[in-house]
Amino acid sequence: MKLDLFKLFGKTNNKSKSVAKERLKLVLIHDRTNVSPKFLEMVKGDIINVISDYMVIDEEGLDIQFTRTRRESDNSPIPALVANIPVLKMKDKDIK
């Protein structure tokens, strides 16, 4: 039986890399929008709760960001919430 140490340590490395990437995203978002990472996590949780009533989503693939955009009327900068939510399937809901 051969033990592949690269695979064993590679899994942890990928997970650490993902965590570091997520933390960096939160820091950048905070700098851009002056929104705390805790607030962003609360918004993310609320969005997941609401959308989960209607569809099955891939929470790992969920990407929510605050960014800046320009208002069409006067071209002034405004914050924007951008969400990329992978939908796995729609739930059967009775619409009355």
Rank of each mutant, 00 (worst) to 15 (best):
D58R: 04
K15R: 13
I29W: 00
P77Q: 05
K17T: 07
N49T: 15
T67N: 09
E60K: 09
M90D: 13
N34Q: 11
L24Y: 09
T69P: 05
N14A: 14
K21M: 07
L24G: 10
L81H: 02
K25N: 07
R68W: 05
P86K: 03
I51H: 05
M55L: 05
D92A: 07
R71Q: 05
K89N: 07
L88R: 13
N75Q: 15
R68I: 14
K89G: 01
S73I: 07
E41C: 08
E60V: 14
I78P: 00
K25Q: 10
I78N: 01
D53A: 06
A80T: 12
V87Q: 04
K93M: 03
D58I: 05
V82P: 01
F39W: 09
R32A: 08
S76L: 08
G45S: 15
D74W: 02
L40Q: 04
G61D: 07
R68K: 14
P79R: 02
P37K: 04
G61C: 08
S16Y: 15
K21Q: 05
V43F: 00
D58E: 08
T33S: 13
D92K: 04
G45P: 02
R71A: 03
F39C: 07
S76H: 12
R71D: 04
V27P: 01
P79C: 03
D74K: 00
R71P: 09
I57H: 00
S18W: 06
L81E: 04
L88P: 03
P86Y: 01
E41D: 11
I48F: 00
M55Y: 11
V50M: 09
D58S: 09
I78S: 05
R71N: 09
A80M: 14
K17I: 10
K25I: 06
E72G: 04
P86S: 03
